[in-house]
Computed example of a mutant assay.
Amino acid sequence: MTPLELKEMLSEIKSEIPEIKKTISLIDDSDLSEFASDMITSEMALVGVIPSYEHVGKIGAFKTLPIFQLDIVEKTDYSAINNDEFVALYERTLKVMFKVRDFVLVKIEDGCYPMLSNIDVTSMTIDPIKKKAQCNGWSMDVLTE
């Protein structure tokens, strides 16, 4: 998956999941703050971290394997949120993360993302994100084999 393919995938996911209001492509988490400043509180964004590439095999018979991350984050006003609302934010963003995961897996099964055809589903992890550039939500790491 190239950076352009990632950006196109983010746009496709956004068009299918109405809760997602914005897509952002970046190199790593430290870039999120400059993009999150444009977000509105409670706005949900899909973030794609531009892949790194692992190589396996020998010369003449190697594979290039993309390793990338998709995040669902929501900008949070910490001065106006209590614990119940905080838990509700994680519930809301987790449901959207599961929609993203399922969408990507269906597209891979349908042959729409050939660059991800060797995805190792057992290596996919979904972890909470807390207070990254005033955003909270979930991060999904995706490895291919």
Rank of each mutant, 00 (worst) to 15 (best):
T2Q: 12
P3Y: 03
L4S: 15
L6I: 08
M9W: 04
M9K: 05
M9T: 13
S11E: 15
S11Q: 14
I13K: 00
I13S: 00
E16Y: 01
E16V: 06
I17G: 02
I17S: 02
I17A: 02
E19C: 01
E19I: 04
K21A: 10
I24Y: 06
L26E: 09
D29I: 13
D29L: 15
S30A: 10
S30Q: 12
S30W: 12
S30I: 11
D31T: 03
D31K: 11
L32N: 07
S33M: 10
F35L: 04
F35Y: 15
A36E: 06
A36C: 05
S37Y: 11
D38W: 09
D38S: 14
S42Q: 12
S42C: 03
E43Y: 08
M44E: 12
M44P: 04
A45H: 03
V47F: 00
V47A: 05
G48Y: 10
G48D: 04
G48H: 08
V49S: 05
V49L: 13
P51N: 03
E54K: 08
E54R: 11
G57Y: 02
G57W: 04
K58N: 10
I59T: 12
I59N: 01
G60A: 04
F62P: 03
K63Q: 10
T64N: 03
L65W: 00
P66I: 02
F68W: 03
Q69G: 05
Q69S: 12
D71K: 15
D71G: 04
I72V: 15
I72A: 03
V73N: 04
V73H: 00
K75W: 03
D77W: 00
D77V: 04
Y78E: 08
Y78V: 12
A80F: 08
N83I: 13
E85I: 07
E85T: 05
A88C: 10
A88E: 15
L89I: 04
R92G: 05
T93Y: 07
L94C: 06
K95S: 12
V96N: 00
M97T: 14
F98K: 11
F98Q: 09
V100T: 03
V100M: 00
D102W: 02
V104P: 00
V104D: 01
V106E: 15
V106M: 11
I108D: 02
I108T: 08
I108N: 03
E109S: 15
D110V: 02
G111A: 07
Y113N: 02
P114Q: 01
M115Y: 08
L116R: 08
S117P: 06
N118W: 05
V121Y: 02
T122M: 06
M124D: 09
T125G: 07
T125F: 06
I126E: 04
D127A: 13
I129L: 11
K130C: 13
K130P: 00
K131G: 03
K131W: 03
K131E: 13
K132W: 14
K132M: 12
A133S: 13
Q134N: 15
C135A: 09
C135S: 12
C135P: 05
G137W: 07
W138A: 06
S139L: 07
S139V: 06
M140N: 06
D141M: 13
D141A: 13
D141N: 15
V142Y: 02
T144P: 07
T144G: 10
E145C: 07
E145N: 14
